[in-house]
Write a protein that binds this DNA or RNA. Structure first.
Lengths: 77, 77
DNA sequence: GAGAATTTGTACGTATGTATG
DNA sequence: ACATACATACGTACAAATTCT
């Protein structure tokens, strides 16, 4: 009965934006601050969502810069 | 029970300095770096405090220059 | 004009506290 | 007890705008 946690929902949204190509490889994800306001959640929730994508190796985060969409691994590796 | 947040307290102090005339219209507010050290808080806390005054239209901030006390609106404008 | 220093702008990293279910 | 979610507050890093030497 428990609804899907907000941070999982947000991770799902962002993952879909990457898979669909809306967020291109090597491009920046929206900042934590932007995602906070855009989705009406706290920074902690945003960070947990992005953390999921990081664990899935879909994105790479650099302090002071932002979070980047990783290039998909070329086939045959 | 929660104490007033530091950034609200600092905003209150700065607002009072403006209202009282200690900080004159068109003069510069102390820099973020100065306010940090002077009040023993982090830069983020200073920025949130100044952000409150900005929302109240008591000050105007210019990147690379500083934050200025706004001149009170002359009657009839 | 070049370069350094200052100041604000933006972004992520971490810790703690509170509240709810 | 635990997970979720929010807010506060510290810090670091990098970038951009401006000023000064």
């Amino acid at each position: 009965m428990n609804p899907t946690p907000l941070y999982v929902q947000l991770a799902d949204i962002l993952r879909e934006m990457i898979k669909s190509g809306e967020l291109q490889p090597r491009s920046l994800l929206p900042s934590e601050s932007y995602l906070q306001q855009e989705h009406g959640v706290s920074r902690g929730t945003v960070r947990m969502a992005v953390g999921i994508l990081r664990e899935e190796a879909l994105v790479v985060t650099i302090a002071g810069r932002g979070t980047f969409v990783r290039a998909p691994e070329p086939k045959g590796q």
